[in-house]
Design a protein around this nucleic acid. Structure first.
Lengths: 205, 205
DNA sequence: GTCTATATGATGATAGAC
DNA sequence: GTCTATCATCATATAGAC
């Protein structure tokens, strides 16, 4: 089935949010809290204060609404990552900031958790915005690390692409461990682990 | 609901596997392929060549059978990790071996993926064997790294616990990235990333 | 022990009134 | 645009025969 996002469900920052907009926001919340399979259209509607009709008017079913919500989540995530980088100067600070828990880590990564969902993984339309967001983040990490190399904070022979993937993986994995331990301690531990290595690997001057 | 594993479904290495045993194996496969929510009792039965009656005779519903399968998967995983360590001498080799893809990484981590499943996360009985398995693996990683410190392959001031969590997180995260990219490339990249850091951080002699 | 038939409930989607 | 009523499907679990 070919899923399309929406039928002009309304802009994000409008005055009075349309039902379509409310539905997107509710779907965003529920995807994060319960994943895709675990979220029922009925509950999205209830949370948005909308009926069945509104949802099927704006979106082509559950998948279409989820797609719109995913795209929104990807934008939010990119904005947050960017913010963490511009607020810091030093490379190690930026890495630590990227790995810092944001208070709701036991809920999992809003996008990463969807990858583990069978219904999402089996639907290319639903995977695409997730893959694109991660590609963007990986690219952003690479740029940030290249910056560090140029400023002499990382060794000149650093494989920035590999390191970017490593840091990305650490954050994703820490989410899983945090959920398992019901604590954000794994985030702190993993940050210590990678920081200690990066410190020790620092170029001598 | 208090879930118990089984009703003596049969030992693992018996001659003629009982229906209970076949059901456990089928559930193991399906949990890995589709997760918990995505697996229906009907399909487990079909794959095991057993009827409804057999399943409900040996186990208390879907959750009970899944619990038995999880325990088995945990044992398998621990055995595999142990094998990778005893086959190698050097610390970095062991770390790389732990992070090596095993050919089916795009399917995800057989246990880790369950953590993202709402029905599993919401059932303490189903989370317990997963948490215990990860605790064992983390402990095993710590022992392995402590070994490396003692042999002078890692700096004496290494925070082995933090590094163990970091490596554990890398593997978990790489599974997510691999699934997203439909490739085991993230495993290779992440291995390069952590290896390069560990090399550079090596104690001087 | 193992099977089939059936009950019960929830899910995602549609129809059609307002 | 938005609503409620209804549908078809499929999920898990139970009952009871063999």
């Amino acid at each position: 089935m070919d899923v399309q996002a929406d039928r002009s469900a309304g802009a994000a920052g409008s005055e009075r949010p349309s039902k379509g907009e409310l539905l997107i926001q509710s779907m965003q919340e529920l995807l994060w809290e319960r994943g895709y399979s675990g979220t029922t259209p009925a509950e999205v509607q209830r949370r948005a204060g909308a009926g069945q009709g509104s949802m099927y008017h704006f979106f082509q079913g559950k998948a279409g609404l989820a797609l719109a919500a995913e795209i929104r989540m990807g934008e939010d995530l990119k904005t947050e990552v960017e913010q963490r980088f511009v607020d810091r100067e030093q490379t190690l600070d930026r890495v630590q900031s990227y790995l810092a828990p944001d208070g709701v880590v036991t809920r999992g990564c809003r996008l990463g958790r969807l990858v583990q969902d069978e219904e999402v993984a089996g639907n290319p339309d639903l995977m695409k915005p997730i893959a694109e967001t991660y590609a963007w983040i990986q690219d952003r990490l690479e740029t940030m690390l290249t910056d560090g190399v140029e400023r002499g904070e990382l060794r000149p022979d650093t494989d920035v692409q590999a390191l970017a993937v490593t840091i990305l993986a650490i954050r994703q994995g820490a989410y899983t461990l945090a959920r398992l331990a019901d604590s954000d301690e794994p985030f702190r531990q993993a940050t210590i682990g990678i920081s200690q290595l990066m410190e020790a690997a620092r170029p001598k001057r």
